[in-house]
Simulated assay, not measured.
Amino acid sequence: MSLSATLGHVRKTAPVIAGPSANLLPVLIILHQETSTPGRIGNALRALGYPLDIRRPRFGDALPQTLAAHAGAVIFGGPMSANDPDDYVRREIDWIAVPLSEQRPFLGICLGAQMLAKHLGARVAPHAGGRVEMGYYPIRPTRAGWKLCAHWPDQVYHWHREGFELPAGSELLAEGDDFPMQAIRYGDAFGLQFHPDVTYAMMCRWTACGADRLDMPGAHPRHQHFAGRACHDVSERAWLSHFLDGWLSRVPEMMMEAAE
């Protein structure tokens, strides 16, 4: 879809905070396209009682200088690259220092995971053979991954052309074939190369609007995306619920008390 009418536009409105007005601090949601949503992750966070503070730095939304008023932060995916020279890309990568220094829960999804890796000094690049992952692909949790979170799915949904190396000081939680780094942890920060956030509506939109990408090496044809969803979505959804619950339990106790 075209964003030509909005490229370079700086929004004057305040960031959108959505969700239940509970005693829980909001989760900062960082999106990259005007029509993007936090998908299933947003739904799961709301179900846990967390309001969502949705911001789009690409369109002028500022990022907070501290996460003292947030339970955690999630940077989602997008069609851009962590290697792009755009100012907002550089700002987001640099901003990851905030959750890391404050030891607040951080989660990067696809592009967000690559930004985390880039911030930590690791290389982000396309596959050497030009292969991509678009569709469902198997992952293999490591011992550290099983220890951290049970109920890992056998296959998860992907939509990406780049991957990242394991940053120094981080821990590999799950690995794959063409793109070995599928899930990593660095303290209270996590990066997922795959997309547990994708809803059925998002899958319909991505595979329709991005149909030309499904001809790339390694990509699955459109019908296999939906066949894979029928087989693997239940286990991926269950894993996401367990993961997010454990991820947010890392909110510092004093912060939880301050929100009460």
Results as ranks from 00 to 15, higher is better:
residue 41 I to L: 04
residue 2 S to T: 15
residue 121 G to F: 06
residue 203 M to A: 15
residue 57 P to I: 11
residue 237 R to E: 05
residue 195 H to V: 03
residue 39 G to V: 05
residue 209 C to I: 07
residue 191 G to I: 01
residue 198 V to H: 13
residue 207 T to C: 12
residue 130 G to T: 06
residue 3 L to V: 13
residue 88 Y to F: 14
residue 184 I to F: 09
residue 227 A to S: 11
residue 66 T to D: 12
residue 101 S to T: 12
residue 43 N to M: 11
residue 28 L to E: 00
residue 75 I to F: 15
residue 193 Q to H: 11
residue 85 P to T: 01
residue 210 G to V: 11
residue 33 Q to G: 06
residue 173 L to G: 08
residue 145 G to P: 09
residue 141 P to F: 04
residue 154 D to R: 14
residue 119 H to W: 02
residue 166 L to K: 00
residue 31 L to I: 02
residue 118 K to N: 10
residue 141 P to M: 10
residue 170 S to W: 11
residue 65 Q to N: 13
residue 49 G to D: 06
residue 137 Y to D: 09
residue 164 F to N: 02
residue 113 A to C: 13
residue 218 G to F: 11
residue 213 R to K: 13
residue 181 M to C: 15
residue 59 F to M: 04
residue 149 C to V: 11
residue 16 V to C: 12
residue 83 N to R: 12
residue 172 L to H: 08
residue 198 V to L: 13
residue 98 V to A: 07
residue 137 Y to E: 01
residue 165 E to V: 03
residue 63 L to Q: 05
residue 63 L to R: 01
residue 50 Y to F: 15
residue 106 F to R: 05
residue 254 M to D: 14
residue 160 H to R: 00
residue 6 T to L: 14
residue 146 W to Y: 08
residue 27 V to Y: 06
residue 200 Y to M: 03
residue 14 A to Y: 12
residue 12 K to L: 11
residue 195 H to D: 08
residue 62 A to G: 09
residue 153 P to V: 09
residue 80 M to R: 02
residue 224 Q to Y: 10
residue 260 E to Y: 15
residue 169 G to R: 13
residue 201 A to W: 01
residue 187 G to W: 08
residue 64 P to V: 08
residue 41 I to K: 00
residue 220 H to Y: 02
residue 116 L to C: 07
residue 108 G to V: 06
residue 105 P to N: 06
residue 95 W to M: 08
residue 212 D to Q: 04
residue 253 E to D: 07
residue 72 G to L: 06
residue 159 W to I: 09
residue 151 H to Y: 09
residue 251 V to D: 04
residue 59 F to S: 02
residue 165 E to F: 00
residue 75 I to R: 00
residue 30 I to N: 04
residue 74 V to W: 14
residue 161 R to I: 13
residue 230 A to M: 03
residue 252 P to A: 14
residue 32 H to T: 00
residue 195 H to R: 03
residue 106 F to S: 02
residue 94 D to Q: 14
residue 259 A to V: 12
residue 77 G to W: 00
residue 15 P to Y: 11
